[in-house]
Each structure stands twice: as C-alpha cells, then as structure tokens.
Design a binder for these strands. Structure first.
Length: 214
DNA sequence: GCGACAG
DNA sequence: ATCTTGTCGC
C-alpha cells in the first residue's frame, strides 16, 4: 500500500511549480498533537494562518491514541486523530505544515506525505530531529541549509531557521519540491526555530491538554 | 549482536 | 512525545 501511495505522490509532486504555488498559498495550516502519557488521550490542534502570520481559524479534536509510537510508522498513531480534526475546519488550507517527515523516511512516505495524499493538499514535513539519512551541519546563519542524504538521494534539508540554534529537518510531503519546501518554510518563520503554523498548533495542543487535566 | 530511531 | 531545575540571553 505504501508503494502505491508513494507512486501517486511522486507523480503529483512533479505537477507543481514554485510560481504556481506561491500565488495559490493564501491559507496555511499547522498541525500538531500532544498526548497525555497516563491516559493516552491525544489532543490535536490545527491552526490556519495567512501570509502575514495572522491566525484565521483554530480547530481541535480530542481522542484516545490507541497505537504506540514506532519509528517509521508515526502515521498509524497520529493520522486518525488528525483526519477527524481536519474535517471540522470551516476553511481549507492551500498548504499544510506537519510536525514530522515527508519523504525523508525509510519508505519515502512519512506522515506529511500520508496526510497530503489523504486530503490531496500540498504538505511540508518540518521535523525537529532526523529520522533517516545524514547531513552536514549548515552554516550558523538563518536561511542556511544542507541536503539530507538517504540512500544516495537528496530527500530534504537541514534548515537553519535561527542562528545559534539547531536546524530543523524539512522534507516535501506532497505536491511540492524540496526547493519550494525550504523557501516556504522560511517564509513562515517568525522569531523562533519552529515555523509559526506548527509552533502555534503545538502551543494550542498543549494548552488543551492542560485544560482537560485541570 | 549493536546502534539508531519523526513523535 | 513527556517530565523537569536552573540558567542563559534577547
């Protein structure tokens, strides 16, 4: 099944160019989840923002997380709650940032790719750490990046989004190239290491969890 | 067998 | 991912 989806994704990713995409990106989504380690209750948050980083809409969904985290199989754990949360949105985004990998994955199909295929939307995977591959440390300058190499292929980039800070790991999810992924990720960086869409989703998901615990 | 390992 | 104290820096 992975192979089928991967083929579809590869075909579709070639149909999008940067100039095309730029003009189409008006609403961007960020998705993140936090989980209560004792109750296994997951809190999914989705934030919609515009190009000026203004928040347009927020959505959330609470559900039990039944599947354990296994490296390489994050989708099985997190995609169900994400799907449920995503369908509650009033507006649909033109681009989605996901906490995790896109094609920088053992089977070239991380959660960002999986989500993109599911909803037929361009996605970018922005992970805080590496799953597979190797990279050389990028220059200590905001905007610097170096390729992530996996099985002799470039599958993404270690991107310095802030100086004196560890890079993040950007890889295409769906209908987007590596080059576009890097540029678009940088365009949604504010003052922090993590791009605003997923950063705000992260804050909201943790807020929800704390609220439910209290 | 050993180490590595998104969240 | 989550827990968790102090600490450094804007």
């Amino acid at each position: 099944m992975y192979e089928d989806l991967r083929k579809i994704q590869n075909d579709l990713s070639k149909k999008v160019s940067l100039s095309e995409l730029k003009s189409e990106v008006n609403i961007v989504a960020g998705i993140d989840i936090s989980v209560d380690r004792y109750t296994s209750i997951g809190y999914c948050a989705i934030i919609l923002i515009d190009r000026d980083l203004k928040t347009l809409e927020e959505a959330s969904f609470v559900d039990e997380i039944k599947i354990p985290y296994v490296p390489g199989f994050l989708s099985f754990r997190e995609l169900p709650i994400i799907e449920k949360c995503f369908t509650t949105l009033k507006s649909k985004p033109d681009l989605v940032f996901i906490d995790g990998q896109g094609i920088a994955h053992p089977r070239g199909f991380g959660i960002a790719s999986h989500f993109g295929i599911t909803f037929n939307i361009p996605t970018i995977g922005c992970a805080k750490s590496l799953l597979v591959g190797n990279y050389k440390e990028p220059e200590n300058l905001k905007g610097s990046f170096s390729p992530i190499i996996y099985q002799s292929k470039i599958v993404g980039a270690a991107l310095r989004t802030k100086s004196d800070t560890k890079p993040i790991f950007v890889s295409p999810g769906h209908m987007i190239t590596i080059d576009q992924s890097i540029k678009l990720t940088l365009s949604f960086i504010d003052k922090y290491r993590i791009p605003e869409p997923t950063r705000r989703a992260d804050i909201l998901s943790k807020k929800l969890r704390r609220f439910h615990q209290a």
